[in-house]
Design a protein around this nucleic acid. Structure first.
Length: 273
DNA sequence: ACCCAGGATTTCA
DNA sequence: TGAAATCATGGG
């Protein structure tokens, strides 16, 4: 299936840190797993060769209906953001599965991206449904509920194993909680997410941004903290203050601005100095 | 051996 | 209420 796109770069999306099941299989050729399917994308310019999913699934997952050009134009008035955007102009905010995103970001706590990817892959291979060949879907909450803390620890999640077990137990007693709260206001949605074990402010923000389409939330991890302190606030402060600052500074699409900054985190400071 | 990673929880002052 | 200690684990 050929699809014409704007503001889309599969390499940048794969490396953006919001998803953990995309991998490079060649030059501008990537494979990812979502909706229980194996999706391959080969990009040449603005043309994608997409296989494995329907066009509706593709459009929803990659947030195709949103006009990123307009957002980038808006943010280009900010000198720092302008440079960040120039490095990741094809980034988009994905709409990923609620449950998979929640568990993945519980695993992300005090962790690094390669290890998160490894754990998510092992959990899928051992406890998820086989799709074909060596490709497995991430387990749903019922499948993951049957997994013990030791089995999870064997996937390299460490002390987070207990959080996953407890969170699954809570969700199993209220199967549609995540869908329900995705329609709540940011404040109420976040309050519900914070009631789950292993979910603090940052993980809650990531779940809302990367799976619920709440693009105005501004997750603050160690990278964003450093970057914001050095480039915007010009002093050391705390995470809560940075989150508040980010939302007021960047407004309606603060989460998208955050992704541009996060993707550019390693090079943006060199450019500006 | 030490520090760090898309932090959260627990403990202590 | 808020700052420190603790939590697994692999890589630099």
């Amino acid at each position: 299936m050929n699809i014409s796109v704007n503001d889309f770069n599969i390499q940048q999306i794969s490396d953006s840190g919001q998803c953990f099941r995309w991998n490079r299989i060649g030059e501008m050729h990537y494979r990812g797993i979502f909706n229980g399917k194996v999706c391959e994308i080969f990009q040449h310019g603005n043309i994608l060769d997409v296989s494995g999913v329907t066009k509706d699934e593709f459009n929803c997952y990659f947030d195709i209906d949103r006009d990123y050009s307009q957002i980038k134009e808006l943010y280009a008035r900010d000198k720092i953001l302008k440079d960040a955007i120039s490095l990741g102009e094809g980034i988009r905010i994905l709409r990923q599965d609620n449950f998979e995103t929640l568990i993945s970001f519980i695993i992300s706590a005090n962790n690094n991206i390669p290890r998160i990817k490894k754990s998510v892959e092992l959990i899928s291979m051992r406890f998820g449904k086989k799709i074909y060949d060596n490709f497995y879907a991430f387990p749903n909450m019922h499948e993951l509920s049957n997994v013990t803390e030791d089995e999870l620890r064997a996937c390299g999640v460490g002390f987070r194993a207990k959080y996953i077990v407890n969170t699954c137990r809570i969700l199993l007693s209220d199967e549609h909680m995540l869908e329900r709260i995705s329609d709540f206001s940011n404040e109420e949605c976040k309050r519900e997410l914070l009631s789950l074990q292993g979910v603090g402010p940052k993980v809650a923000d990531c779940v809302m941004l990367f799976s619920m389409g709440k693009v105005d939330v501004f997750p603050v991890d160690v990278w964003i903290k450093r970057l914001m302190e050095e480039l915007y606030i010009h002093k050391e402060t705390n995470i809560k203050e940075i989150a508040t600052f980010g939302r007021s500074q960047f407004g309606e699409f603060a989460g998208i601005a955050q992704q541009y900054l996060f993707y550019a985190r390693n090079t943006i400071k060199r450019i500006l100095l």
